[in-house]
Amino acid sequence: MTAADAETLSVVVERDLPHPPEKIWRALTQPHLIEAWLMKNDFEPVVGRRFDLRAEWGSVGGEVLEVEPGRKLAYTWGDENLRSVVTWTLTPTGAGARLRMEQTGFRRDQPRYYGGAQAGWPRFLDNLEHVLAGLD
């Protein structure tokens, strides 16, 4: 870990979901499903693919860094001021899967971004749970 890494903050949200990892993976990677719980987008789960997420308040850009179907997805998340990484990890459980979202890279001088992520991700995951409940 570098000194710069020690200066950054992370947001972690975990949920135990009553759905198989493959179903959750669909909601994390299919554009129409991402739009239903997160934002409008042009996402594709392909390493190196750049994408945009758009909402009424603005947009966020990203690039896919890692894809392990049904297990792990990582991408950059940011704008001209924020350079962060969002990593989704799926771990099978007896009742479904544990979903872990970690967003890393918030500088200490970015309380608005950090606070927004702390407040926003739990709501986005609530939305995700509603989308999953409606999927076959």
Rank of each mutant, 00 (worst) to 15 (best):
Y75S: 07
M39S: 09
Q118T: 04
T89Q: 12
L38I: 00
T8Q: 06
L82I: 12
A55M: 10
R107P: 01
L9R: 15
A6M: 08
V47S: 12
D42C: 13
D52V: 13
D5M: 06
R15S: 11
F124S: 12
H130Q: 11
T89S: 07
E68D: 14
T87H: 07
W88E: 03
D5L: 10
K40E: 14
Q103C: 07
S84A: 15
H130I: 04
L132A: 07
E80V: 08
R50D: 13
R112E: 10
E56D: 05
K72Y: 08
R15L: 12
V86G: 08
G78P: 02
D16A: 02
N127D: 14
V46G: 10
M101V: 15
G96W: 03
Y113C: 04
D52Q: 13
E102L: 13
A117R: 06
L17A: 03
L53G: 14
R112V: 02
R26P: 00
Q103E: 15
W57N: 03
T8M: 05
E129I: 10
H19D: 00
R26V: 00
L17I: 02
D5W: 09
L9H: 06
D79P: 02
V131Y: 12
K72D: 05
V131F: 14
V46N: 10
V11N: 02
R112S: 02
K23C: 00
F106C: 03
A27M: 09
L132H: 07
V64S: 10
R112H: 00
F51K: 06
D136Q: 07
W88S: 05
K23G: 00
N127E: 10
G70F: 10
E63T: 13
A95S: 10
Q30C: 09
D79H: 09
K40F: 01
A95W: 00
R71L: 10
G94C: 02
Y114L: 15
V67D: 07
G48H: 12
R83S: 13
G120P: 01
L28D: 12
W88R: 05
P45T: 15
E63H: 08
V47I: 14
L128W: 06
L90E: 01
D42R: 12
P69G: 14
P122N: 05
R54C: 06
T76L: 05
E102V: 15
S10F: 09
S84F: 11
W77R: 09
L125Y: 09
W57H: 10
R71M: 09
A95N: 02
A27E: 12
E66D: 13
G70Q: 07
S59Q: 07
S59L: 12
T76P: 02
R49D: 08
V86K: 13
R83Q: 12
L28R: 11
V60Y: 06
R50M: 13
L135C: 07
A3L: 08
F124L: 13
P69F: 14
S10H: 11
T104Q: 15
A36C: 07
G96K: 02
M101Y: 04
H19Q: 01
N41D: 08
R108H: 04
V11A: 04
L82D: 05
H19M: 00
N81W: 14
Q30G: 08
L9N: 03
V46E: 15
L125D: 05
W121P: 02
G115W: 01
